[in-house]
Lab assay of single mutants.
Amino acid sequence: VTLFVASYDYEARTEDDLSFHKGEKFQILNSSEGDWWEARSLTTGETGYIPSNYVAPV
């Protein structure tokens, strides 16, 4: 399981994006799509795309 933590807050801009807060942890589901990764929030359980430059490895 690949875990990352949010370095910043992010507000979703499309329905496919995932909003999150600094400190929130994610399981990365797919990182092969470039700068936007499909992730599941371990806080909310929601799945969506997050900007990879807003998160760091745990």
Rank of each mutant, 00 (worst) to 15 (best):
E46N: 11
T2D: 11
Y8W: 12
D16P: 04
R13H: 10
N30T: 08
F4C: 09
W37A: 01
D9L: 03
E33G: 13
L3N: 05
S41W: 02
A6L: 01
V55S: 02
T14Q: 11
G34M: 10
T14H: 14
V1E: 12
T2N: 11
E33T: 12
T2Q: 13
D9I: 02
F4W: 15
W37V: 05
P57V: 08
E11T: 13
A6T: 03
E38K: 10
A6K: 00
V55D: 03
L42V: 08
Y54C: 13
N30P: 04
H21F: 12
Y10I: 02
E46L: 15
Y8K: 12
E46K: 15
L18V: 05
K22N: 04
N30Q: 08
P51A: 04
Y8N: 08
D35H: 09
G34V: 11
V55I: 10
P57D: 05
S32R: 09
S32K: 10
A56T: 15
S7E: 14
L42T: 07
A39N: 01
D35A: 09
N30R: 07
A56C: 14
T44M: 01
E15P: 13
N53F: 10
H21C: 13
Y54V: 06
Y49Q: 08
W36M: 11
T47R: 09
D9H: 06
S31N: 12
G45N: 08
S7V: 15
T14P: 02
S32P: 10
T2Y: 12
V5Y: 08
S19Q: 04
T14Y: 15
G34T: 12
F4M: 09
V5M: 10
G34R: 12
S31I: 11
G45K: 04
V58K: 04
E46H: 11
L29T: 06
K25W: 13
F4K: 01
F26H: 00
S31W: 13
K22R: 10
S32D: 11
W36L: 07
F26Q: 01
W37Y: 08
S32E: 10
R40V: 13
Y49A: 05
S31Q: 13
F4H: 05
Q27A: 09
S19M: 03
F4D: 00
T47S: 09
Y8F: 12
E38S: 07
E11W: 09
L18R: 01
L3F: 11
F26L: 09
I50C: 04
V1C: 15
W37Q: 02
D9N: 08
V1Q: 12
K25D: 01
F20H: 01
T2K: 11
D17Q: 15
E11M: 11
V1I: 13
N53M: 12
F20T: 02
T2M: 13
Q27I: 15
E11Y: 10
K25F: 15
N30C: 08
P51T: 02
E24S: 04
Y10R: 04
R40D: 03
H21P: 05
E11D: 09
L42A: 05
T2R: 11
G45H: 06
S52T: 06
E33N: 15
S19C: 05
P57G: 05
E33R: 14
T43I: 08
E38G: 02
T47G: 03
S7F: 14
R40G: 04
N30V: 08
T43C: 12
V5R: 05
A12C: 06
I50S: 00
G34Q: 12
D17H: 15
V55E: 03
A6C: 06
I28D: 00
G23K: 01
T43A: 10
G45V: 02
S52R: 10
T2I: 13
Y54R: 08
E46R: 14
E46G: 07
A12I: 01
G45M: 06
V1D: 13
S52M: 09
E33D: 15
S52I: 07
K22T: 07
A39T: 02
R13W: 07
K25E: 09
D35W: 09
T44E: 01
S7P: 04
L29N: 04
F20L: 05
G23L: 03
P51S: 05
L42N: 04
H21D: 06
Y8L: 10
L3P: 04
T43K: 11
V58W: 13
D35K: 07
A39Y: 03
T47V: 14
R13S: 10
G34P: 15
W36I: 07
D17S: 14
T14G: 15
Y10W: 09
K22V: 10
S52D: 02
A56Y: 14
N53W: 15
Y49H: 07
Y8E: 10
V58D: 10
L3I: 15
Q27T: 09
K25A: 08
Y54Q: 07
S31D: 13
L3T: 09
F20D: 00
F26Y: 01
S31F: 15
S41E: 03
D9Q: 05
A6H: 00
Y54D: 03
T47L: 07
K22W: 04
L18A: 00
I50P: 00
N53I: 10
F26W: 01
